[in-house]
């Protein structure tokens, strides 16, 4: 716990340092960075809405880590989840919102689950490491979703590479207009709570933890290696898919090419900072969202380039591994 605080402070000071070094107007930039999410209602809402997506995505990866697996296919899984939801929303007959929303979310989660579970199954069946297979499937899927949005689902009227809007009844309620904060925040809260209960209270969560912690011990206890090679990464895929659906229904309302990009990688960063615990994921997601919004605010106000965000994110990952990751994950990788 103390470690997390140290890491957070380290990350914040590193970011400050980088901003100070790389910005032509350091003082202005740093002030804007730190006050970024609180400058106005819109920024605050954006902060929470990006944090809530990170909570969903990061929680999945946390569970995946606890199960002793690594999922590098986040980018493709988020995008595919969103695309599945989008396809259903645009192609199915119009339904009342209360039926449609759960249906769309389920479509996204199932899609994400199946994609990720494939990697788990390949690991179990053919010993193909899930790192490489999840990355490669994700690579292919990103292009496939690009194709869906730019091809069959494309809105011919628009100058964006985008689909038509989904029916208004399907969207998640706005909570803090004009900011993009939406009722997906309750979904994120539910995910965080449910994953905590799942991991620490449920029978399956217990088995998953045991399998991830010491697979021989788990097999000794009769826990099926196949199920628990597929379940952790599958759950992370399902939650990535969910994050895609929430981004679609809560923020974008339409498919725009590449509209979920970055969420997959940030999910991993969140989980690494959180150190594989769903509860700490809340905290890590707020931290990462804070940095994201802070940087974009610094960019908008002071002459900070787009690249600084990359440098900061990269530095975070490098620093985080020095401190946080436990021995188990080292062995795993």
């Amino acid at each position: 716990m103390k470690g997390k605080l140290v890491v957070s402070l380290l990350i914040l000071s590193l970011t400050t340092l980088l901003l100070a070094l790389l910005s032509p107007e350091p003082a202005e930039t740093i002030v804007r960075f730190f006050t970024g999410p609180f400058r106005n209602i819109y920024a605050f809402g954006s902060f929470l809405s990006s944090a809530l997506l990170l909570v969903i995505a990061g929680t999945g990866i946390s569970i995946c880590f606890r199960g002793g697996q690594f999922n590098l296919g986040g980018e493709g899984q988020v995008y595919s989840g969103a695309a599945a939801s989008l396809t259903a929303a645009l192609l199915l007959p119009l339904m009342p919102g209360f039926i449609a929303k759960p249906l769309l979310i389920a479509a996204a989660m199932i899609t994400g689950f199946l994609i990720a579970a494939l990697s788990g199954w390949l690991r179990h069946r053919f010993s193909i490491h899930e790192l490489i297979s999840s990355y490669l499937t994700s690579g292919a899927l990103v292009f496939f979703c690009d194709f869906l949005i730019s091809g069959p689902l494309r809105d011919e009227e628009s100058f964006l590479i985008a689909t038509q809007r989904i029916p208004g009844a399907y969207t998640l309620a706005q909570l803090l207009p004009p900011s993009p904060l939406h009722s997906g925040i309750f979904i994120a809260a539910a995910v965080a709570a449910a994953s905590h209960i799942f991991l620490h209270r449920s029978v399956w969560g217990y088995r998953l933890r045991m399998f991830g912690e010491q697979s021989t011990f788990a097999r000794f206890g009769g826990i099926s290696p196949r199920t628990y090679r597929i379940m952790p990464i599958g759950i992370s895929g399902a939650l990535y898919g969910l994050a895609g659906a929430v981004a679609l229904l809560g923020i974008h309302y339409r498919g725009i090419q590449g509209f979920t990009a970055g969420l997959g990688w940030n999910g991993i960063a969140v989980a690494l900072i959180a150190g594989t615990s769903p509860v700490m994921t809340l905290y890590a997601a707020l931290l990462v969202a804070y940095i994201e919004i802070g940087i974009s605010s610094a960019m908008a106000g002071a002459a900070v380039t787009y690249d600084l965000g990359l440098i900061v994110r990269g530095a975070i990952l490098i620093v985080v591994t020095l401190k946080v990751l436990k021995r188990k994950q080292e062995e795993l990788l």
């Binding site: 209960i197 209270r201 449920s202 029978v203 399956w204 217990y206 088995r207 933890r209 045991m210 912690e213 010491q214 021989t216 011990f217 788990a218 000794f220 206890g221 009769g222 188990k328």
Partner: peptide, 29 residues
């Protein structure tokens, strides 16, 4: 094989019986 050394005593103790330790909610220990 016999233990998951980084887990708690409870986690280790209930390996064979965890599915019988559920309360009123099915699946929740």
């Amino acid at each position: 094989t016999g233990t998951a050394v980084r887990c708690s005593v409870t986690d280790n103790a209930m390996l064979h019986v965890h599915k019988n330790l559920t309360g009123s909610i099915p699946g929740i220990i």
